[in-house]
Design a protein around this nucleic acid. Sequence first.
DNA 1: TTTTTGCCTTGATGCAGATCAACCCTTTTC
DNA 2: GAAAAGGGTTGATCTGCATCAAGGCAAAAA
Lengths: 248, 248
Amino acid sequence: MAHHDLQTVSHECGDCPIRHRAVCARCEADELARLEQIKYYRSYQAGQTVIWSGDKMDFVASVVTGIATLTQTMEDGRRQMVGLLLPSDFVGRPGRSTAAYDVTATTDLVMCCFRKKPFEDLMQTTPHVAQRLLEMTLDELDAAREWMLLLGRKTAREKIASLLAIIARRDAHLKLKSAKGSIVFDLPLTREEMADYLGLTLETVSRQVSALKRDGVIALEGKRHIIVPDFDRLVEETGDDSDGGYLI
Amino acid sequence: MAHHDLQTVSHECGDCPIRHRAVCARCEADELARLEQIKYYRSYQAGQTVIWSGDKMDFVASVVTGIATLTQTMEDGRRQMVGLLLPSDFVGRPGRSTAAYDVTATTDLVMCCFRKKPFEDLMQTTPHVAQRLLEMTLDELDAAREWMLLLGRKTAREKIASLLAIIARRDAHLKLKSAKGSIVFDLPLTREEMADYLGLTLETVSRQVSALKRDGVIALEGKRHIIVPDFDRLVEETGDDSDGGYLI
DNA sequence: TTTTTGCCTTGATGCAGATCAACCCTTTTC
DNA sequence: GAAAAGGGTTGATCTGCATCAAGGCAAAAA
């Protein structure tokens, strides 16, 4: 069901926007050539489901542009987002044949896909892919543990502030600006998606966003455009020790 | 501060109890020989801290026997356990010089340690170590995401049932019995540690354990010895879909 | 233009789990 | 053998967030 309706992506790996951060980051020219042979692109529109948990998944992929989410759902419908996938993040697991989570495009999304079998073969022979994937997986594990602290122990207000701080940091990073002083960005998530990520209801998310606005920690233009006049002030609201080493 | 007060562990890798599950599981004889050269054992008594978050950490290690925990602490003292380390689990991160979490021995503990630098060198040259570490890290990431669902969306009763089911499964696995019908095991955690793991208070843990006992889902002998007359009944209480693929 | 739909906000109320507090039992210490 | 310490239970009360409910606003559809 993939479409060709987005800008035609006649990519060479050489000028790929995620070339230096994705699973291929460490590859030499010859390794890249092998990857290039087995790669193909897929595009999804905002809101589309990439794959359902339990479905057969015969590829792995890197997010090239856009944002996707990983979500778990309980029988009775309770939902918990367990991952936010940004450009360069990796989707899927070598050595596993079915998807473990629902993967959804929250914005228009382009992924660089590799059929699983050839990718696995390639991992056996080109150490740089496996090395980079290990590094990325360790980073994700750290992020997941950070999130466990948030889910288990933070208040609703701290949760919102933490999410905003993370998105602000990432955004500053993508724009190559330092996350200091005044920052402006657009929320890539609806209130409901934020709630699914933070273990809250959408009503509580809405109330706490309003509270942070009322208290001058953030300002809003419309519902999605966030202005952070003082980033340090926002960080104070997260409950984390002020420096908190993570830089995305 | 390591002690030699536990059974003297004059181990050859060949008859190591975690030989086939730890980071060394895939190693050939020659690779094992290289590991053997740089390994050393450390023992800790129940309650001892292995390392504090932020401390310099010049080794990585495998848990050989006993149980350790990874914990994050907020400035005001709120605590969240983010990992439970069982025999064969890996501690530390290649390429990082300080500990990211508090590591504590909850039972008497023996670890097989490798100085970080030689281990990193070895990883570059022996693909089997890196491969196995990737596999283990991916498993841990899945476990962390499972835990995110628990922390974000499950009720106190479901959290307790989930923890008991996980420990029961692991225990059955170690004893090479199937996790079916009646199971008996000892809780390796205090009520407070359970609370830290589950994002609850110790009072709520105590109450919910009592409630599960009152409802006949479990029986207790003393405070730590748990009897599960019907494992499927316990699983029903976890909120997970009945089969829930994980086998430890 | 009107209607519908998606997304968001705000208010009223309820409840699960936190908090505060008392006490029990077992093991360790002196 | 008394006292202290560690771990656990249970009760009373409080509160943060969920739930239920109504309505606003802008974009899309009719």
